[in-house]
């Protein structure tokens, strides 16, 4: 998912207000921006929605990496449309975050100077064309696992953003699966690309759900507030259970020898990802962290004159209109 290890803020509000707030959530009411909310709820949401928005934006980079090399006009068009959708998701999510009293520019600055994070998955490279299929299938697939339940989250603007986003994400996932299926059924070289993409992206995809949160106090608070709907382990298991039969259908080898159906549990067993690698990536030491952040910083820096120019023009235009009245 696109928001990982979001620390929820402790809250020091009036206990009576807090209880009434919790009761609203328990009744399934939506919290709207103008409603009273605990400071911790607001701050946690800003962090979570902001991280989610940043992931959509940084996520353009690994996919954009293949737009100019897409092998057919149709594939190029599909990929362009997808990346455009992701930027649109970023936009809805920044708008949702803005209702909590933080501006898009402030959030952007926090991304650019490393104070805010984006999903660990986008710090992995896309190395062959099958990666583009695999990203749609696995990465959008993992994101959906988390985002579908978030359609019912307690914060109104976030819930509504998720409803719009989910429709497009499931489309992305189907298209990604279709792209990798073409390769799995293609020439030996194409099949090799598909297998390579699956092997490389499998564990990073499992890491998207974040470490096991059974001991985390933070996630308990977030779950009570309905801004986190399931535990990380629940979602990860669901993802594995959904994906293993798809891998088999593609005729690819399983990326983890530990994957085995467990009759007793009614789930697939699988090997836990290497969490030390995950923490390295989170700390900035993933294969692409430096390049991704540099790319975003350069875009922002190089675009400053454009933003300034357009703003100056808008002000001149308003002044001229004012003078004419």
């Amino acid at each position: 998912m696109y928001a990982q290890m979001v620390k929820s803020e402790a809250t020091q509000d009036d206990p009576e207000k807090l209880a009434a707030f919790q009761a609203r959530i328990d009744r399934g009411e939506k919290i709207e921006p103008k409603d009273w909310m605990p400071e911790g709820y607001r701050k946690t949401l800003i962090r979570q929605i902001g991280q989610h928005a940043h992931s959509e934006i940084v996520g353009q980079l690994p996919e954009g990496n293949w737009i100019t090399r897409a092998p057919t006009l149709e594939r190029k068009a599909i990929l362009l449309a997808k990346v455009q959708d992701e930027a649109g998701h970023g936009l809805y999510l920044y708008c949702a975050a803005e209702t909590l009293g933080v501006s898009r520019d402030e959030l952007t600055e926090m991304l650019l100077d490393g104070r805010m994070k984006y999903s660990s998955i986008f710090n992995y490279p896309t190395l062959n064309w099958a990666d583009i299929g695999a990203v749609g299938w696995l990465v959008d697939g993992a994101a959906i696992m988390n985002q579908v339940p978030l359609q019912r989250t307690s914060f109104g603007p976030y819930s509504r953003a998720m409803i719009r986003v989910c429709k497009e994400e499931s489309f992305h996932q189907r298209q990604g699966y279709d792209a990798i299926r073409k390769m799995a059924e293609g020439t030996p070289e194409q099949k090799k690309m598909a297998q390579d993409a699956l092997n490389r992206l499998w564990f990073p995809s499992l890491m998207m759900f974040g470490p096991s949160d059974k001991d985390s106090v933070h996630s308990e608070q977030s779950m009570a507030w309905k801004i986190k709907m399931n535990t990380n382990d629940e979602l990860r298991q669901k993802f594995v259970d959904q994906t293993v039969p798809q891998i088999e259908f593609l005729g690819l080898e399983l990326p983890d020898p530990g994957i085995k159906w467990n009759e007793e549990r009614g789930h697939y067993d699988y090997t836990d990802p290497d969490w030390s690698e995950f923490f390295d990536v989170i700390k900035g030491n993933g294969p692409c962290n430096t390049d991704r952040l540099a790319a975003r910083n350069n875009a922002w820096k190089d675009g400053a004159w454009v933003r300034d120019g357009l703003l100056a023009h808008a002000q001149k235009k308003a002044a001229r209109k004012h003078a004419a009245e």
Binding site: Q60, G64, V83, L91, Y94, R104, W300, D302, G303
Partner: peptide
């Protein structure tokens, strides 16, 4: 793609 001066662009 991914390098424009603002998201809208």
């Amino acid at each position: 793609c991914g390098h424009a001066p603002v998201l809208e662009e």
